[in-house]
Design a protein around this nucleic acid. Sequence first.
DNA 1: GTAAAAATAAGGGTTTACACTAATAATTTT
DNA 2: AAAATTATTAGTGTAAACCCTTATTTTTAC
Lengths: 218, 218
Amino acid sequence: MKKIIIVDDHSLFREGIKLMLESNGFGEVIAEAENGSVFLETLKTHKPDLVIMDIEMPVMNGQEATKKALEIYPDLKILVLTMLNDRENYQEMINAGALGFVLKTSGKKEFEKAIQAVINGENYFSNDLLREIILNMNAHQQSVPVAKNNVSDIHFTAREKEVLAHFCSGLTVSEIAEKLFLSIKTIEAHRSALLRKTSTKNTLNLVLFAIKNKLVEI
Amino acid sequence: MKKIIIVDDHSLFREGIKLMLESNGFGEVIAEAENGSVFLETLKTHKPDLVIMDIEMPVMNGQEATKKALEIYPDLKILVLTMLNDRENYQEMINAGALGFVLKTSGKKEFEKAIQAVINGENYFSNDLLREIILNMNAHQQSVPVAKNNVSDIHFTAREKEVLAHFCSGLTVSEIAEKLFLSIKTIEAHRSALLRKTSTKNTLNLVLFAIKNKLVEI
DNA sequence: GTAAAAATAAGGGTTTACACTAATAATTTT
DNA sequence: AAAATTATTAGTGTAAACCCTTATTTTTAC
């Protein structure tokens, strides 16, 4: 009988997953935690064969909890179960050391496959997520060289930040030029630099990038 | 045996709640829906005693689904089960006609009490939420003077919502056309309608409008 | 004080966005 | 059954977006 710990801030979700796991004979839920901090405490008295981990949680999130837990117990098998399906969260959790990644929108069958894989020490990644990643890869083509993916690593100049902020408030190139008493060509040059640095292909995606990465307030 | 429909975009959450309801003899889950639109279709063939409804869902959200469902079936008993604990969502759902409101962070007992109350036609509001609202009543009070009339009055067709969602994920007109197997001219027509209805002048401002007014999830 | 980076600007080219008009078929409402 | 709305597609034209190269001035850095 495999021992399982569920880490998720939604009590009802924990209840449901617990029922599903136990009624299907997947294992026994020996503990639950509503955030990463409580989970780390729980590990002092419980040794699970599998951890089902959410990402977004108060006090301590999933990335930090996964990282810290694996520092102490490197053999821990962690399956991420979340509703966040963006590439960054996926990469962060994999870097933190999670073995598998499944979305809450996934079906029961996929969840069960993921559990089996992770308990056996194998990797499992949600098909929906893989599709999303592949689609994004085509859209961005060769502009995502894996190394430069950290948003905090990107350096914007003061002017670029200023221009970006204006794009994010909905202004066009000519409007920004007028506002800053600069030539249209200058604003276009700044935009080109912004597109290059963020690996985005047009202004709309640049603005979406800025919003998603909280580079601006909207 | 009470007949229940679960409306939530997270498949695994539906599974869990279903198991919980059925193993505790609360009723039988006769149908599930991953968004409001699918739910409205489901109502044509199923007559539930209770609907458990999420708020944030793609295609059609909980507010709209609740409103439309109650227009057709005024006696429908709807219990909102969500992780959104802000006053706006609470008020909108109550205005839409939901009888109860429970957070996903709530415990099983509170959930069961809410179900019993709503099935009997009574109201039930999550204690956590009530506390939150009472705490914030003084802080917000007059700060939101019901100035939200414009946005909720706008009516988008199903196609328009679909196209809008694709714009908000950063796709261009030609990419959306390819994705939906439609002509570029068709997508342009939908965009023109969206720009007209939202009083925006270009796609970027349309997307910013949608994000600011929470018409889409980003 | 020289090299590097940043800010500015232009020319020229392709692609996409957007407005306006118009038309047909399907669906829904009355 | 008739009317209204929705979904679809097209043509035409202007404006804006976007790419590429080049280049000067200013600021920053070592």
